[in-house]
Amino acid sequence: MPLHRGHHEQAQVALVLFCVGPYRTALEARHVLAMTDHPTALRTANAQTLLYEGGDHETPPNRWLTLRDAQAASDNNSTWQLGVSGDITLQQLPANTLYPLPKLLLSRRFSTALCGLTFHQQQLVLLLDARKLHPSLSQAPCS
């Protein structure tokens, strides 16, 4: 048992960190299939439009993360690309520092993909559930 408990305390989660507008954001790394400088998939979406109402200050993405389409049938390998910005880094963060979104906020969030929060380098990081993210409307690749 002590071994098991020790293993749990040391558990890490691999996350891909990026920016959505001015906000530091992360996805679990196992859901990110690739990263490109330009959109190559048939379907894309700017993360900002999926997460919150950006108003007039939508930040254009400069990186594209390829994700499997969670809404597609399980035997379908279709993918889409999420447009993000800022520095993209791969980080192993301790599991016990990843917090679920407070209960009161669950029913009021703009996107159900917003599932938790953590802190990295004294900065709040929004944790997204990749399985809840999908391009609501098919879009042509941005140029």
Partner: peptide, 23 residues
């Protein structure tokens, strides 16, 4: 208090208090 986007204006944000996150 840390601002979280994508929530109504009546949500000021979250606070980090002794290992817990509270709205």
């Amino acid at each position: 208090v840390y601002y979280v986007p994508g929530l109504p204006a009546s949500t000021e944000g979250v606070l980090h208090l002794r290992g817990k996150i509270e709205s």
